[in-house]
Write a protein that binds this DNA or RNA. Structure first.
Length: 569
RNA sequence: GCGCCCGUAGCUCAGUUGGAUAGAGCGUUGGACUACGAAUCCAAAGGCCACAGGUUCGAAUCCUGUCGGGCGCGCCA
């Protein structure tokens, strides 16, 4: 029937071919490649539907139903298409497709033959993508906000890679600057206290249990060797030591936790490493050349308003230190000029950083002359909304410095990886999310992830039984008499490639959780209405293959969001 | 004040880039296992898609305005 393409894409192209000439005659040929083909919304409307005639009607000002009739005539002239379906014009001018049974039966077999590649892509223009997310300060534990971005970013990576793009993930370590300094001082103070010395946390110091534990661990490593360096006030060398050692310990723990959350970064990039080579100063000097900067009020500014920002931004402060913005430009310049030649840089930022987008994009434009024209990557910034923690009906302020946030660790021990990832990815990243830990723990057993996993386990059970019973598959070409439930299940599973494609293109992995739920529901309904192994031999063979396809599709859709697909539960 | 995001069933949220009669889970009510797994299924109830205009064959979806909520608007990171 088709080679590597999935059935729906194949069908789409057949329709395109059939109507292209007609559309070209009307001067709207482009519609052949941008019309919509969707699952019919309800029974009686067939299996697939297109609003092509309605859209064409708006473009050339002809009555839609008449256009629909002409389009159908063109489709009927396409022999391949005619073998797959019959047509009907309905309502204001929809064209409904009623797929023939052998087309559906054949499509299941073809999809199954693709194995785990069903739904995977081979894009016309594969991209080399550097995807950056989480990027937390190494001054404490990862919290549920980070968990949300980790789940989202990692799922997006899996989806884009599945679609055939070359994706590298990166964690940018903000291990430089005032926050790190305060963290080092906080650890020094806690260290002194573990030795029984009098020491006070800095005013803005990191409170809570976590820095205390890190300090205790360092004390275990070095004993009282730095006793004289930390009191009455820590020496510069002591601060450096605690900052660096603390950073190492925190990062190691973050890696371990992310690993437990099934999030694996290809690269960890240190901000401090940029300073070690003077990268911020260097990039600022390069920007001075083409007149992108200006000195004002004793500071050096980047004229970002030239590129749509609402005000210019400081690169070098009055007292000579580069701003975070300057080092971020150095970082982005680095990303733009790596030997891999990424053609797309995707950053996932929290909503609290959205005000930063305009200046970063402006900076990228200012950098353009410094990067060869055919090597300039496109910068794409995705803003993820925040997670609100609800406690006893009230919002709880999350503060790392006060040590009052709900941690990723808490989430994992409370509700587990599968439930947590499913829950976090299930909502659009564009909507703020309320998380009530008490309810989340109570509700973890009714998390929809189990509904989807159960469908998978159930199918595994059927397949196991088939093997145990020595079930023999027979050829089911020509099988007919599809029930409504199996027809629905077939259509749902055949649409998987379009769902993955949309999830990748729109950067919306949450479409996969919705899809997984819908496919599982469709399967459960099928299961209750259509015996598999008990059916007559041809039906049994077909249904068993359908089950296998659904099983592997559920497994893939879960895999793409980092959730396991158990064989039994 | 300005900018971005959001407002859909009692609660938590989807809604395939503008499609046909608005969807799911939880909760409520009532049903289905001597059956390939009841972590399931079936049925009922529940809606002025915040509000008001506009665009068109058609709007939860796009535009304008209003109201309400979140987040920003540093020579912090």
């Amino acid at each position: 029937m088709q080679d590597s393409a999935d059935f729906i894409s194949f069908f789409y192209k057949l329709v395109s071919e059939a109507v292209r000439g007609l559309l070209a005659g009307w001067g709207i040929e482009k519609l052949a490649d941008m019309y919509t083909l969707e699952p019919a919304s309800r029974r009686g409307h067939g299996d697939l539907a297109t609003s092509m005639a309605l859209v064409a009607s708006g473009m050339i000002n002809h009555p839609p139903r008449q256009l629909a009739e002409e389009l159908v005539a063109a489709m009927q002239a396409n022999q391949g298409l005619k073998e797959l379906t019959r047509f009907e014009v309905a309502g204001p001018g929809f064209i409904n497709f009623f797929l023939k049974e052998d087309a559906l039966v054949g499509a299941v077999g073809s999809a199954l033959a693709l194995g785990t590649h069903f739904g995977s892509g081979d894009p016309d223009h594969p991209e080399k993508i550097l995807l950056e997310f989480v990027s937390a300060n190494p001054t404490g534990q990862l919290h549920v906000g980070h968990a949300r971005y980790a789940a989202y970013g990692d799922s997006l990576k899996r989806v884009l890679a599945f679609l055939g793009h070359d994706v590298t993930t990166e964690f940018y370590i903000n291990d430089y600057g005032a926050q790190m300094e305060i963290f080092g001082r906080s650890l020094a103070a806690r260290y002194a206290q573990t030795l029984g010395l009098e020491a006070e946390l800095p005013v803005d110091g990191y409170r809570g249990d976590y820095p205390r534990r890190v300090a205790a661990r360092i004390a275990g490593e070095i004993g009282d060797r730095l006793r004289d360096e930390v009191t009455p006030a820590p020496s510069a060398a002591a601060i450096d030591f605690f900052r660096e050692r603390g950073c190492e310990i925190v990062l190691a723990e973050m890696k371990a936790e992310l690993d437990g959350f099934r999030v694996d970064f290809d690269s960890w990039f240190s901000e401090a490493s940029l300073y070690a080579v003077g990268a911020a100063q260097k990039i600022v000097d390069k920007l001075k050349g083409p007149g992108e900067t200006e000195t004002r009020e004793g500071a050096l500014w980047l004229k970002t308003t030239r590129y749509g920002d609402d005000k210019d931004r400081v690169l070098i402060r009055k007292h000579g230190e580069p701003t975070y913005f300057a080092s971020d430009i150095a970082y982005h310049f680095d990303k733009a000029t790596r030997p891999q030649h990424f053609n797309r840089l995707i950053n996932i930022w929290g909503a609290d950083h959205h005000g930063y987008v305009a200046r970063m994009k402006a900076a990228m434009q200012a950098l353009e002359p410094l990067v060869p024209e055919n090597e300039r990557p496109q910068l794409e910034i995705i803003i993820g909304q925040l997670v609100n923690v609800i406690e006893r009906g009230e919002r709880r302020q999350m503060s790392k410095r006060k040590g009052t946030m709900v941690t990723l660790k808490e989430l994992l021990t409370g509700i587990g990886v599968d439930a947590a990832r499913f829950f976090l990815v299930d909502r659009s990243h564009d909507s703020a999310m309320d998380l009530d830990m008490e309810k989340a723990k109570l509700k973890s057993e009714e998390n929809p992830v189990y509904y989807v996993q159960y469908a998978h386990a159930r199918i595994c059970s059927i397949v196991r039984k088939a093997e145990a019973d020595g079930f023999r598959m027979i050829n089911y070409d020509g099988y007919s008499g599809l029930s409504n439930q199996e027809r629905q299940l077939i259509m749902d599973v055949l649409f998987f490639p379009q769902v993955v494609d949309g999830a990748g293109r729109m950067r919306e992995p949450h479409r996969l959780t919705a899809y997984g739920r819908a496919l599982a529901a469709s399967f459960h309904v099928f299961y209750h209405n259509c015996p598999v192994l008990g059916a007559e031999p041809q039906a049994a063979s077909f249904r068993l293959d359908l089950c296998r396809l659904v099983r592997s599709t559920i497994a893939t859709s879960l895999e793409l969001i980092g959730v396991s697909a158990p064989q039994s539960m």
